[in-house]
């Protein structure tokens, strides 16, 4: 804040913007340990429309100075080795199972489905009018042991905590 920004009038797809947000979230989160194999792994579970956008965004971008690997899977066990998990809305029925498998590991869990944040994902993106907004579940983040910058918290629409 405090500097000028322009409303970008070039219209871009919702998927591209969400993918860009996911990349941006990684800049505001600190993982407690170094990454295995010098690779930052993003796991996407379920059918969604972000695949191509995620591939484009992370094609030439490193996260925390390490290469990024994206895996697309329907197998919950694949998530244990990820640093960031994106849960598609098709996984609503398996959400509790997915969250249980992830447990308290240092994995940033992101979604874009209503109620997912309240159910335990760390960050949930949603459409507000013609903009993308996000909400944060502070309790879920605390459980992962990740540290989130206050800058990210400040711009969250709703900061939710599970009672």
């Amino acid at each position: 804040m405090g500097t000028y920004h322009h409303a970008v009038q070039a219209q871009v797809s919702e998927s591209d913007v969400k993918a860009a947000f996911i990349e941006r979230f990684t800049r505001f989160v600190e993982w407690p340990e170094d990454f295995d194999d010098e690779t930052f792994t993003i796991a996407v579970i379920g059918k969604n429309t972000l695949d191509a956008s995620l591939d484009n965004v992370f094609a030439d971008i490193k996260v925390k100075n390490v290469e990024v690997k994206i895996i697309y899977t329907d197998d919950i066990s694949d998530l244990e080795y990820a640093n960031l998990v994106f849960i598609a809305r098709t996984e609503k029925r398996r959400l509790n199972e997915i969250l249980a498998v992830i447990g308290h590991q240092p994995i940033l869990i992101i979604s874009d489905t209503k109620d997912f944040c309240a159910m335990g994902t760390c960050i949930n993106m949603y459409v507000d009018g013609s903009h993308i907004r996000y909400e944060i579940n502070e309790t879920a983040i605390k459980n992962t042991g990740l540290k989130v910058s206050s800058l990210l918290l400040n711009s969250a629409k709703n900061i939710k905590t599970n009672e």
Binding site: A19, I61, V127, S130, S155
Partner: peptide, 23 residues
């Protein structure tokens, strides 16, 4: 050509203000 990568060069504030749909 337009690429999603272009978006990663925007500021966070710009991302929050980018428009995705019309009514």
């Amino acid at each position: 050509a337009l690429e999603a990568q272009d978006l990663t060069r925007l500021s966070f504030d710009d991302l929050l203000h980018i428009e995705i749909k019309a009514a």
